[in-house]
Write a protein that binds this DNA or RNA. Structure first.
Length: 833
DNA sequence: CGATCACGC
DNA sequence: ACGGCGTGATCG
């Protein structure tokens, strides 16, 4: 059987016989006369093949440019062809998809040396540049070494990564080559280069997997956005000034300066879906500029955020930046660099540049969404966007700070920190040090280990210096070390929540306005995160600076009771554990069951069992658990540490024995992550946990812990996410306010707060309104008008228990019993002591 | 830029 | 080999 005419001379279409039946050939060789390759004379190696055709790439008729395979040399092709053809077929490549070229032009049977590969490399460069393939797959180590120009890397290490070929210039492609989206660009592109094993020396399955990875398999993004008209857009603004609007549909991508945005109205009016990148801020700008904004864009149900979609598509992706993502997926040239300098003030950016940035962002967000949307569960997409939209409104509402209280806490922290620093410096001077800073490790080593004669129990790994980390210092059991620990504690607190917080608080008379920003998919589990400022890590006392904007109003804190234990009990189908947390007294019941004695809340046995329960749920090992109890919680089961560890282990065992569903759940998660290398949550989120070497993979234990935790943590945050949507809806329904009215009110209030004179007092709505002002994992924070406290407290508790949104979308969640613990007080968290 | 520290759930 | 998930300040 002849698959290829190795002379490379012009071929007609061949019919090939394989296993007795006629199949169409998948490669058609054709000389590439125009290729630079054929014009380059090889002066280097003297090992090259002997014919004109040998160095020519094998390109099929009407090649789709989908894939260029690089193999070691033509000599190998005859041996490859059967297995290659099989694997390409299996991976879904047709004959017109694949061209072939070689790392070496040698016809020798001897493996190519690095010297020889380097000599032939210019040909390879020229061929790739000439052929402009969209993907290049390198088969075997020689092809890999040639492309990387580096002989000391294994296929196993390089596999699965996007590779760069030194010396390969970008090449221009017109839009029609690249996309069905009517991309109005001339793109500078480079192919995606990946490597796989030599199919003869390795399992063909690996090669097939590599061929089918998204980057190789996926063609240019199909327009698989929702069927209704979908418009991408972006805005540029400064302060309260609207500057530029970028807008893109399936055929246009244009930018309009603020004064002419009216021209975009027809496109917006015809749109059903809206797409952007971190889109809810942009939607707010549309609304502020008086443009069409549908209710579905406010509530998030007909919005696609390319950033959220990218994160849902691959939660392990390194970056979720629009330009990077698009660069990776369709090789565009960067378009933001020229405008990056103006980020602080886009007014200074030349309009032409600003418009181009805005136009391309709009286009890119839409392209990226099309690339990911079709792969995702639309129910989850809808849910996630509705949560994100509701959280954006939470951030608009903002919270109000008692400025004086914050100042007092902050200055108290500062005062104590300085006092401790003085004491420490004094101690240093007394032992003869002239220079001392408590944050300088060198000074600390000198103080404790040279001057005070303390003996370190640990040395640093790299430089073998005596350690000055917290545990080591604590073990010194020296009064000065204890002072230092207290200093560290207060110093950190002050720099984050004391002085550090001030830059996010806008003074308005005696109050301060602070917006709590939430990243809707901050964690790989589907949890939200909070930043600038991060309101999720405020210690109890710091929370108490938050007060109601209403005179005489209150702050409500609505916690789900033991949300994660309830979820793990439900997921593990452990009836007894479920009863303890859903109907009984939670940790108290568990503690009494485990210890066999009567236990009171807050006592050491209670604290110990609570810690063990949480530790077990996250698969904490006995040693660490014992250590944590001993050091942090001051729970000592015996005076002897070894006995203490033993007892911790025993109690851990008793807990697992009494609630056998837990072990079953954990084993199930381990089994699944081994089998599928990914875990699904109840709402269909995925967590990829690749274990290429099964349980022998480095980090296997960690992956199992993540698998165990994932379903629990993600469902908990989805329930709370639903609560944000549902509580807001319930409050507005009760007040008789439409979502549009509420949204406009929030925008207007925010504008007033941001532009107000710091000395003026705050402006409040003319009617009493209950605001959701924050969400912390299993906790909603509410700002109550005094007239609404009673009525809305009941409403919120009921709504949080019912969470209609998630229960309607995923009816199985109706089985999970939810309890809510409200606490109302003048300041956030004050009622919890 | 990674490690270490602080805080939260 | 590893309790899960975060943000932010600071240092070497």
């Amino acid at each position: 059987m002849q698959l290829l005419n190795t002379s490379g001379e012009g071929l007609g279409r061949l019919k090939l016989r394989g296993k007795g039946k006629v199949t169409e050939q998948w490669l058609l060789a054709e000389p590439l006369e125009a290729a630079g390759a054929s014009r380059i004379a090889c002066k280097e190696c003297g090992l090259c093949g002997n014919g004109v055709g040998y160095e020519k790439p094998l390109v099929p008729e009407n090649w789709t440019k989908r894939l260029l395979l690089i193999i070691e040399g033509r000599r190998w092709l005859d041996e490859y062809k059967v297995s290659l053809r099989r694997v390409l077929d299996k991976a879904g490549y047709s004959g017109s998809d694949v061209a072939v070229y070689f790392a070496t032009r040698s016809s020798s049977h001897i493996e190519a040396t690095m010297r020889q590969l380097r000599a032939c490399r210019p040909f390879l460069l020229a061929v790739i540049e000439e052929l402009k393939p969209r993907s290049v797959l390198l088969l075997g180590d020689k092809a890999l070494h040639s492309v990387l120009n580096k002989g000391n890397i294994s296929v196993t290490r390089a596999r699965g990564r996007l590779l760069e070929m030194p010396g390969l210039p970008g090449y221009l492609q017109t839009v029609s080559d690249c996309s069905k989206l009517g991309n109005p660009l001339l793109l500078e592109s480079i192919p995606h280069i990946y490597c796989s094993y030599d199919p003869l020396q390795s399992n063909e399955g690996f090669v097939q997997t590599d061929l089918q990875r998204n980057w190789v398999k996926t063609d240019w993004p199909a327009d698989e956005l929702p069927k209704d008209k979908t418009v991408g857009f972006d805005t540029e603004y400064y302060g309260t000034e609207f500057l530029t609007l970028g807008i893109a549909d399936e055929v246009h991508a244009k930018a309009l300066e603020g004064f002419e945005v009216g021209k975009a109205l027809p496109i917006l009016q015809s749109a059903t879906w809206l797409v952007g990148h971190s889109v809810f801020e942009d939607i707010a700008w549309l609304r502020r500029a008086g443009m069409v904004v549908r209710r579905e864009w406010i509530d998030g149900s007909k919005v696609l955020d390319s950033l959220l979609l990218a994160r849902m598509d691959d939660e392990n992706q390194q970056e979720y930046k629009l330009e990077t993502a698009l660069l990776n997926c369709i090789f565009t040239n960067p378009w933001k660099d020229k405008t990056e300098n103006y980020l602080a003030d886009m007014r200074g950016c030349p309009p032409v540049l600003r418009m181009e940035r805005c136009r391309l962002d709009a286009w890119a967000a839409r392209v990226l969404a099309a690339k990911t949307y079709y792969k995702l569960d639309s129910k989850l997409v809808n849910f996630t966007h509705r949560i994100a939209a509701a959280l954006y409104r939470v951030s608009l509402a903002g919270a109000f700070v008692d400025l004086e209280k914050h100042f007092l806490i902050s200055s108290e922290l500062k005062k104590k920190t300085l006092a401790l620093e003085d004491q420490l410096r004094e101690a240093a001077i007394q032992v003869g040090m002239t220079e001392f800073t408590p944050t300088n490790d060198g000074h600390l080593r000198e103080l404790f280990y040279e001057r005070l004669g303390c003996k370190p129990s640990k040395w640093t790994g790299k430089k073998d210096l005596p350690a000055v980390d917290q545990i080591t210092l604590k073990l010194l059991n020296h009064p000065t070390a204890n002072l230092l620990l207290e200093f560290n504690h207060l110093d950190k607190l002050n720099s984050v929540q004391g002085e550090g917080l001030s830059k996010f608080i806008l003074p308005l008379g005696s109050l301060g306005y602070v917006q709590f920003r939430h990243n809707p998919l901050g964690a790989r589990t589907g949890r939200r995160s909070s930043s600038e400022p991060n309101s999720q890590n405020w210690p109890g006392p710091m929370r108490q600076i938050i007060r109601s904007r209403w005179p005489g109003g209150s702050i409500g804190d609505f916690d789900y009771k033991s949300l994660e234990p309830v979820i793990i009990a439900w997921d593990a189908q452990d009836e007894k554990l479920m009863n303890a947390f859903s109907k009984g007294r939670g940790y108290l019941d568990v503690a009494e069951e485990v210890l066999g004695i009567t236990v009171k809340k807050g006592t050491k046995p209670y604290v110990a069992v609570k810690s063990i329960v949480n530790g077990v749920h996250y698969n904490m090992q006995t040693k660490k658990m014992a250590d944590d109890l001993w050091r942090r919680l001051n729970v000592h089961f015996s005076e002897d540490f070894k006995e203490h560890v033993k007892e911790t282990g025993r109690l851990r065992g008793v807990y697992l024995e009494k609630y056998p569903g837990l072990r079953v759940y954990m084993a199930r998660q381990e089994e699944r992550v081994l089998k599928y290398n990914l875990i699904h949550s109840v709402t269909g989120r995925t967590r990829r946990l690749p274990l290429p070497e099964g349980r022998h993979t480095t980090g296997f234990g960690h992956a199992v812990n993540q698998a165990i935790n994932f379903r629990v943590q993600s469902l908990a945050s989805d329930i709370t996410g639903s609560a944000v949507i549902d509580v807001e809806a319930a409050i507005l329904a009760d007040l008789g306010i439409s979502l549009e009215e509420y949204y406009d009110l929030l925008l207007e209030l925010q504008r007033k707060y941001l532009t107000a004179d710091p000395l003026s007092s705050i402006i409040l709505p003319t009617i009493p309104i209950t605001f959701i002002i924050n969400e912390v994992h299993d906790d909603l924070v509410i700002d109550f008008h005094p007239d609404l406290v009673k009525k809305h407290t009941e409403l919120i508790v009921e709504t949080m228990r019912a969470v209609p949104t998630i229960r309607k979308l995923w009816p199985i969640t109706k089985e999970i019993p939810l309890r809510v613990d409200p606490s109302i007080s003048p300041f956030w968290g004050e009622g919890k002591e």
